[in-house]
Structure formats: structure tokens, C-alpha cells
Amino acid sequence: MKSFYRTAPATLIITSACIILWLVAAFQARSLTNVFSGSALMNNMMVWGPAFEIADHWWTPLSYAFMHLDIGHLTVNMFMLMLIGREVERHFGTVLFVALYLSAAISSGLLILTLDFMSPTAGASGALFALMVLLISVYRSRGADLRAPIVLVVVNVVYTFLTTGVSLWGHLGGLFAGIILALCVNRKSPVIHWVGIIGLPVAAFFLYTGVGA
């Protein structure tokens, strides 16, 4: 674990935060399989259109990415985050990794609000989809075989369309965010990196306000 923290501290901290928050929500709900309806923390952190507008839960397009519905949802997402996040963080560095992660999570959250306003949503899947796309760029920069990360993305996209109960626009939002962020961070100029990282959630917010209008 010390070695993991040295090479990917942000990944470990984000994973730990998700686990701790889920444990609090599970304790409130008195359930390991359904924390959605019985936890005040979940209700305050999940992204849901009416709460975002009426109750002014302005933080939820980010906070939703740190909450999970049940122990299975948490386990799968944290396993993926530990594996993929470590590689992406080691490649881009901790500061850039955190910025990429937050940008993808917020952009996905805003897309959910735009296109799936009435669906309460929680989970790190949107950010994870972006990390999967960024993993392709990591492999490409190393001259490694791209088949494994590409298959990973394709399998998860197919899973999104075939499985009920997942956030279609959360997953696709993360996928689109990952593509845009990868195009930006593959450029040599740090200015382009940050234009993409900051500009993406800003554009997603204007899309939300434009559609809402």
C-alpha cells in the first residue's frame, strides 16, 4: 500500500473517500444492498435534476461521483479505479490526473442533468469511462499493444447498452469527456491541456443551461 501511495496518491485517496462515504451512507440506510433511499448523505450527494434546481444542490454534479448504490457497485468501480487510475496517474502526474478526473466527473454529471434530468444518479462510472479512454493514450505513448485498453472500452460500452439500471448518459458522458481530454493532453502545450480540462465542464454547463432554457 505504501508503494501504491507513492506512485498514485490521488487514486488511493479518491478510492478511500468513496469507500468511507459509502460506509457512512450504508450505516444510515442500514443496508449493504440499497443505500439509495435510506441515506441522507446519498440524497444530498447524488445528482438529480429537481434537487439540483429546486434545492440548489449545486455541488452534486461532482459529489455524485463519490457515492455508490450498493456494495457490488462500489466494489466493481473501486477495483477499476485502482487498476486504471494508477496507470493514468503515473503517466500524467498527480496534479494533472486529479484535474482530468474532476473535469470528467463534472462533465458527465452535467450531461446527466441535461439529458436524463429526472433520473437520480450516483457512481464513479463516468469518470472511469474517461480514464479508460485516457488509458489508451497512455498505452499509445508507451508504444504498447492497444488492443487490451480498446477492448476494455468496447466491452464497457456494450455493457452500458445491454444492462438495465446503469446511467447511459453518465457512461457516455465519461466516454465523450475522455476522448476530448485525451485529444487535449496529447498535445505538447500545457495551455491546451488546461483549456481542455477547464473548458470541457464549462461547455457542459452551457449545454445544460441552453437545453434547460
Results as ranks from 00 to 15, higher is better:
7 T>A: 15
124 A>G: 10
189 S>C: 07
179 I>N: 08
39 S>C: 03
144 A>N: 06
173 G>Y: 00
156 N>K: 11
170 G>T: 10
196 G>W: 07
59 W>A: 12
59 W>H: 15
163 T>R: 13
211 V>I: 14
98 V>K: 00
191 V>M: 13
146 L>P: 00
82 M>F: 14
128 L>S: 03
131 L>Y: 02
77 N>R: 07
4 F>N: 10
60 T>Y: 01
176 F>V: 13
170 G>Q: 10
195 V>M: 15
208 Y>L: 13
172 L>K: 03
34 N>H: 13
100 L>R: 05
199 G>V: 09
44 N>W: 14
82 M>Q: 07
161 F>I: 04
91 H>P: 04
39 S>E: 00
52 F>V: 00
138 V>G: 02
71 I>L: 11
164 T>S: 15
83 L>I: 15
127 A>T: 08
176 F>M: 13
206 F>N: 11
47 V>R: 01
194 W>F: 15
183 L>M: 14
201 P>Y: 13
148 A>Y: 14
141 S>Q: 12
188 K>V: 12
90 R>E: 14
56 D>P: 04
17 A>F: 12
79 F>G: 13
9 P>G: 09
40 A>I: 11
189 S>H: 10
78 M>I: 13
50 P>Y: 03
29 A>D: 02
84 I>K: 00
35 V>S: 08
95 V>R: 15
44 N>F: 15
37 S>I: 03
192 I>K: 13
20 I>W: 11
161 F>K: 04
149 P>I: 01
41 L>F: 05
181 L>G: 02
25 A>L: 07
90 R>M: 15
211 V>W: 13
158 V>N: 04
192 I>W: 09
19 I>F: 15
157 V>S: 03
78 M>H: 02
26 A>G: 05
151 V>C: 11
71 I>S: 07
103 S>Q: 06
106 I>W: 03
145 D>K: 11
108 S>A: 15
38 G>V: 05
97 F>S: 01
77 N>I: 00
205 F>D: 07
91 H>Q: 13
44 N>M: 13
189 S>F: 11
184 C>F: 09
99 A>W: 03
20 I>P: 06
26 A>Q: 06
7 T>D: 14
2 K>I: 14
19 I>Q: 07
82 M>Y: 12
197 I>S: 05
35 V>T: 15
31 S>K: 10
207 L>T: 14
136 I>C: 08
134 L>A: 02
122 A>C: 10
185 V>Y: 05
17 A>L: 15
174 G>L: 01
86 R>Q: 12
197 I>M: 06
74 L>P: 02
20 I>T: 11
53 E>G: 04
76 V>C: 06
48 W>N: 09
105 A>Y: 02
18 C>T: 14
80 M>F: 08
119 S>Q: 14
183 L>V: 14
204 A>N: 11
106 I>K: 00
180 I>V: 15
107 S>G: 04
87 E>G: 10
120 P>K: 01
87 E>Y: 13
27 F>Q: 12
42 M>D: 06
53 E>S: 12
8 A>H: 05
130 A>P: 09
36 F>N: 11
208 Y>E: 01
183 L>S: 12
129 F>T: 07
206 F>I: 07
135 L>P: 02
24 V>C: 05
186 N>A: 06
189 S>E: 09
108 S>V: 04
140 R>Y: 12
197 I>G: 03
146 L>D: 01
101 Y>S: 04
143 G>T: 02
177 A>L: 07
148 A>C: 05
109 G>Q: 00
211 V>F: 12
206 F>G: 01
169 W>K: 02
37 S>T: 11
